[in-house]
Structures are given as C-alpha cells and as structure tokens.
Design a protein around this nucleic acid. Structure first.
Length: 104
DNA sequence: AACCTGACTTCGG
DNA sequence: TCCGAAGCCAGGT
C-alpha cells in the first residue's frame, strides 16, 4: 500500500455494508479525492483479492455494473443478488434504494 | 517527456 | 434517458 489516499480507499470499500452499493466516485470522495474515481478502479483490481474487498459492491454513477461482459459482469450481478440487491437484466441497480449513505 | 489506456464523471444536446 | 465530448489521475510504453 502507499499513501493515505490508498488506505482510505481500501477502508472505505471495506465499510460498504452488505446489501448496499457505492459508486467509484463516492469511494474516491470518501478517501479525500473526488476526482480520483479512476484510481479507485486501479486499487480494486490490485487489492480486491489480496485484501478480500467487497469489490462487487462498487458500481458506476449511473447505477450500472461497469465490468465488461465476460470479465466478471455476470459474477458481480450474481454476488449482489445473493446479498438481496435487485439487479435488472441489463445489470442496473436502483441507486435511490441501494446506494450506501455513510453515517446516514 | 509524449502518448495511450482504463471496472469513471459531468455536461450538453 | 441515451450518446459524445471533455475532464480527470496514475501507470505503462
């Protein structure tokens, strides 16, 4: 790991409660850098295995799974459904219902 | 150093 | 709501 931002990102992702989802930008903001959404992706790819992160709870700002089909898209949808999150056929989640609101 | 790339986001049309 | 363009940051060539 390297830097405070990295630690905050990992910490924030681990904090996402079961049955809820967070967006890349939201995690970045929580970690202290609202513009670093793309970096969150990097950390996910690097530490999801190593740190046992709930990577499947992170989706994009449109409420849709960003993982390309054939590269884990279906797996992510399955993992979310297993937690009780409603995922539509086109891999979309209703953020008004499932978006994680820290503190709230 | 320039250039490309990516599990992103926001803004206009 | 759905694109396309532009902005964004870090790592790899």
């Amino acid at each position: 790991m390297q830097g405070e931002f990295a630690e905050n990102v990992i910490s924030a992702i681990k904090s996402i409660p079961r049955g809820k989802v967070a967006t890349y930008g939201q995690i970045a903001a929580l970690a202290g850098n609202p513009r670093a959404a793309r970096q969150v992706v990097r950390f996910l790819k690097t530490y999801s295995q190593k740190e046992k992160l709930p990577w499947h709870r992170v989706i994009n700002a449109r409420g849709q799974i960003s993982l390309p089909a054939g590269a884990g898209r279906e797996l992510q949808a399955a993992l979310l459904r297993k937690e009780g999150v409603a995922v539509s056929d086109d891999e979309r989640v209703d953020l008004n219902i499932y978006l994680w609101k820290p503190g709230g």
